[in-house]
Design a binder for these strands. Structure first.
Length: 931
RNA sequence: GCCGGUGUGGUGAAAUGGCAGACACAACGGACUUAAAAUCCGUUGGCGUGAAAACGCCGUACGGGUUCGAGUCCCGUCACCGGCACCA
């Protein structure tokens, strides 16, 4: 007995046939401006997928969900007359290939090539309309040559705080260019993962473990390459406003960047050293009863008194041994130690003790805080534990006349972190919190003891990895100084190695390649490699011009595919208070990588301040364009008519603060340096939801609930696979897989097939005799045109599930028709084509009898007249409850409709003789009688 | 704790403030068949009345509100999912 299912229609022969056809005819190739077949009259549409990492496991059903959605849009837009750029490529540097290489000794390039071939085969089986001539691979020297080139752009640029723009390093007039480069070397307490043998970016560490593999991550001081993403913090937040992205992703990015407004306040220690703290509540300054420094804060050693030195040293030592996990997770119990020192509050000249505690983070703000236990939960807990004084300075109700600055003797019973009115605060008394903040900041400014300040949680991007399978840095070291190699030497190939294993010491494996290492008798190559994100930071640009050997992307190609109508990026033009420092303010110029020890923190990391006037201006409104370059009326409008960038980008949420933030950063830097025409890369972003296993659990090998697209395609065909992925539910929602659901969609496609084809005795198929060249009747015509309308609208809004529902309705209406009007069936095939391209091409060929490619046919128009009914069936409510339905002429006016409704016996029954107070008639919708 | 999202039949879901449950899945009944598969037709939110046609009541997490009318808008509560979390 054969276990093979009978195929509901011969998808197994027609799918390869049409895939070969599209390939031979290069149906989905789109030429660039300047090429002979380029049609400049068509508008462009750039539709992008997040390109996959070609793992050995192959595609899972989650990948093609987004890919199918974009494929439908791409095919649709093409049929609507757009030049559609819809490419695919491979994000192929990365750990798994390298770990596999370590296990097997096989070179990562070999396994990567095999995996790419496997992935590509799987994608092609699904029938995606990619322009394969534009395929990119991040490990291709012709590609990573330009990744290295972009690194050199960042290396050779700095961020000018006055212009708020990246500029060539040549415009920098300060003493030490190495201290301001966008790519710089710093000693920092970095995330070191021993298991992976490499350091990781903050974004790659989750709950103290590596995102990849879940291995423990510890802080360790190392000398590393950093990218100065913090310089762009303000613009990265500001730029989100104009983007058509899900609010959740915008919120995630805003949250990650973590902008907060407050003030810097400078206390003076008894020894004379100024101690600057950052606070978001300067209005509580009168309630500051002690200061706290982070254990790593640079002033700790200087401030500590000899009597307390042992205790402080022990505490700092202990804190440094704690992992991040221990410092945060177990941290509800506060610890700390007194330095023995005091500082003076600049507003009331009160002497307050200076403490050290690891609840204060060295990397944020100034690494020092003023503690206001009455109004901060953490300070409250610390003060309780160490019996420090607590003074109430904010009340939830105005208590005027209590003031005078005299400290309240009774300690409050509770911590009140909310806003209210200042009390016990001298000149601030009675002011609401927001006004008190402004007033105290103004007063501090006047005496030079403080100023308004903005800080960010975002840290600079740790950009080097101690791995083999990544882009080598185009940098050499000579006499302890780094310098770029000339762009003409790119691509810089990685050395051939037989041992890819991490050294375990933090020294990268590239250091084993002695010959490669030697650049000149006196210069050695940088041995770190770039992180996997490097290649994906700009791949969308390379798609525009993938084989260009002169430039990372040609100017004409870039401005066509990425261009909009160009407007200056609207960012507040305001200077930073002081130059951004690296993670711990320790970025000193070069030394050998890996040789350095963590120096003492200096300066004031991640802290930017602007003058009060500019801040007020910014708070009111975004800066208007400084000049109008255009004479058109559009220049008066604040929003660009066409923002440009990628028109639609679909992918998962997992890259919210990784790829999507990194790519925006590179894009802005390249934009500033004049290489790009738009300030933002991705105009519209959509996240597809997760596909769960049939058991409703997340798909995973260990649960055994993983669905492989190949087996689905084997049994039901690619078209059924595509349609099911879209029919499951809204694109953005998580939803469980269901094999019976696939079967249902497969039945639908088989019905479409049998609309046109009839099975013979011998099992072969021939054109159904029911098909005839007749006009559809009014009802059928209405369904067909409603379907054309709805499917087109639904594709625009990515509501693919309801588009398919509508086509099912259409098919259900066509099935019983005899004869079946050919024109109606052809329209159906056209609208179904983006969803089920193989089936519809085949039937189109059979039915049209001419050798055309359906994918090339224009999208059909719908006729509004066909949708108009002569009569309407209207529901009639009495007091909002449905009681009857009446049929009225489309042309009947409201009073006629009302009269008809009131004539209904059922309606009369429910009115029950009561006087009718009001009748609401919504034309074409309903009637509501109010009694 | 903070931010974002979600809550509708047995299941996936649909519904510009206007007939809740379209379209499917599953289930049940029927036709075709020697039989099965496939296909086609029908029933299917809950409770109640009725032989039946039909009719009534309830129903979109829960409690309020706005409205002629609320799944949809507003206020509050609960549950679940995702992110951040000693960020001063």
């Amino acid at each position: 007995m054969s276990s093979e299912r009978r195929k509901p229609y011969p998808f197994d022969t027609i799918e390869p046939k049409w895939q070969a056809h599209w390939d031979t005819h290069q149906t989905f190739h789109v030429p660039n401006p300047g090429e002979p077949t380029f049609d400049p009259t068509r508008p462009k549409f750039f539709i992008l997928d997040m390109f996959p990492y070609p793992s050995g496991a192959g595609l899972h059903v989650g990948h093609p969900e987004g890919y199918t959605a974009t494929d439908i849009v791409a095919r649709f837009k093409r049929q609507c007359g757009f030049n559609v750029l819809h490419p695919m490529g491979w994000d192929a540097f990365g750990l798994p290939a390298e770990q596999y290489a370590i296990k097997t000794g096989q070179h990562p390039a070999v396994t990567t090539a095999a995996n790419v071939a496997h992935f590509k085969g799987q994608l092609q089986r699904i029938g995606f309309a990619y322009d394969w001539q534009r395929e990119v691979n991040t490990t291709d020297p012709g590609y990573f040559r330009w990744t290295q080139w972009i690194f050199l752009q960042l290396y050779s640029a700095w961020f000018n705080a006055d212009t708020q723009r990246a500029e060539p390093i040549s415009t920098y007039t300060g003493p030490d260019p190495d201290s301001v480069r966008l790519a710089y070397v710093a000693d920092a307490r970095v995330n070191w993962c021993a298991e992976l043998g490499t350091v990781l970016a903050n974004e790659e560490v989750i709950d103290g473990k590596s995102e990849v593999g879940g291995f423990p991550v510890v802080r360790r001081p190392m000398r590393q390459w950093m990218l100065r993403i913090t310089a762009f913090a303000e613009r990265l937040i500001h730029g989100l406003d104009g983007l058509d992205w899900p609010d959740s992703i915008k919120a995630l990015q805003r949250n990650w960047i973590g902008r907060s407004e407050g003030a810097e306040v400078t206390f003076t220690s008894d020894a004379g050293a100024p101690i600057t703290v950052f606070t978001t509540r300067p209005d509580t300054l009168f309630g500051a009863t002690y200061l706290v420094l982070a254990p790593e804060q640079f002033l700790v050693e200087k401030l500590t008194t000899p009597e307390q030195a042992d205790a402080v040293r022990a505490y700092v030592e202990k804190a440094s041994r704690k992992s991040d996990l221990e410092r945060t997770d177990l941290a509800k119990d506060k610890t700390g130690v007194w330095t023995g020192a005091f500082a003076t509050n600049p507003v009331n000249y009160e002497r307050v003790p200076i403490w050290i505690a690891d609840y204060v983070l060295a990397g944020y703000g100034t690494g020092a805080i003023m503690a206001v236990p009455a109004h901060d939960e953490r300070d409250w807990a610390f003060a309780q534990k160490f019996a420090l004084p607590i003074r109430e300075v904010v009340s939830d109700t105005p208590r005027l006349g209590l003031g005078g600055g005299s400290p309240c003797s009774a300690e409050p019973l509770d911590c009140f972190p909310g806003e209210g009115f200042a009390i016990n605060s001298g000149p601030l008394d009675g002011l609401p919190t927001s006004e008190a903040k402004a007033e105290i900041t103004r007063r501090l400014g006047a005496v030079g003891a403080g100023k308004k300040c903005i800080t960010y949680k975002l840290r600079d991007w740790l950009f080097s990895r101690q791995r083999y399978w990544g882009e080598p840095f185009p940098v050499v070291w000579e006499e302890g100084k780094h310098r770029a190699i000339p762009a003409s030497e790119l691509p810089l190939m990685p050395p051939e190695l037989s041992d890819f294993e991490p050294t375990g010491t933090g020294e990268p494996p590239l250091a084993r390649a002695v010959e490669w290492l030697t650049y000149s008798p006196t210069a050695r190559r940088e041995t770190n490699t770039m992180p996997q994100w490097a290649g994906s930071c700009w791949y969308y640009l390379r798609y525009c011009d993938p084989s260009n050997t002169e430039r990372f992307v040609g100017k004409a190609a870039e401005s066509y595919w990425m261009g909009g109508s160009i407007e200056p990026e609207q960012t507040p033009n305001r200077p930073a208070c002081h130059a951004q420092a690296d993670v711990l303010g320790m970025a000193k110029s070069s030394g050998g990588v890996g040789e350095g020890e963590a120096g003492a923190a200096q300066g004031n990391p991640n802290s930017m301040t602007s003058s009060p006037e500019l801040m007020e201006f910014e708070a009111q409104s975004p800066a208007p364009p400084t000049s109008f370059s255009s004479t058109s009326a559009g220049a008066l409008s604040q929003t660009p008519s066409k923002p440009g960038g990628v028109d639609l980008y679909v992918g998962g949420t997992e890259h919210a603060v990784l790829h999507l933030l990194y790519a925006r950063f590179w894009h802005k830097a390249l934009y500033d340096l004049g290489h790009l025409s738009t300030p933002e890369p991705f105009q519209r972003l959509v996240n597809q939801g997760l596909i769960m296993g049939e058991d409703g659990q997340k798909m995973s090998k260990s649960r055994g609930n993983v669905v492989n697209p190949d087996t689905v395609i084997e049994a039901y065909g690619a078209d059924a696979f595509r349609c099911y992925e879209m029919f499951m539910g809204p694109l953005e929602q998580s939803k469980p897989w269901s094999m019976t659901g696939v079967e249902g969609v497969s039945r639908f496609l088989a019905r479409v097939w049998r609309l046109v084809m009839e099975e013979q005795q011998d099992g072969s198929w021939s054109l159904s005799p029911a098909i005839a060249d007749v006009e559809p009747d009014k009802a059928l015509r209405k369904v067909v045109h409603a379907t054309i309308k709805k499917v087109g609208e639904d594709i625009e809004t990515l509501s693919f599930n309801t588009a398919i529902s509508q086509m099912m309705i259409c098919v259900n209406a066509l099935i019983p028709a005899s004869p079946r009007p050919k024109s109606a069936v052809l329209r159906l095939l056209q609208v179904l084509n983006p969803f089920a391209p193989h089936l519809t091409e085949e039937l189109w060929e059979k039915l049209a009898g001419v050798p055309t490619t359906l994918a090339d046919e224009p999208w059909p128009a719908w006729d509004p007249v066909a949708l108009i009914e002569d009569e309407w069936e209207l529901p009639v409510q009495v007091n909002g409850k449905l009681r009857d339905k009446i049929t009225v002429s489309r042309t009947a006016d409201a009073s006629e409709v009302e009269k008809t409704a009131l004539l209904s016996p059922k309606v009369q029954e429910h009115i029950g003789g009561k006087p009718v107070r009001k009748v609401i008639v919504v034309p074409g919708k309903l009637v509501n009688v109010v009694v």
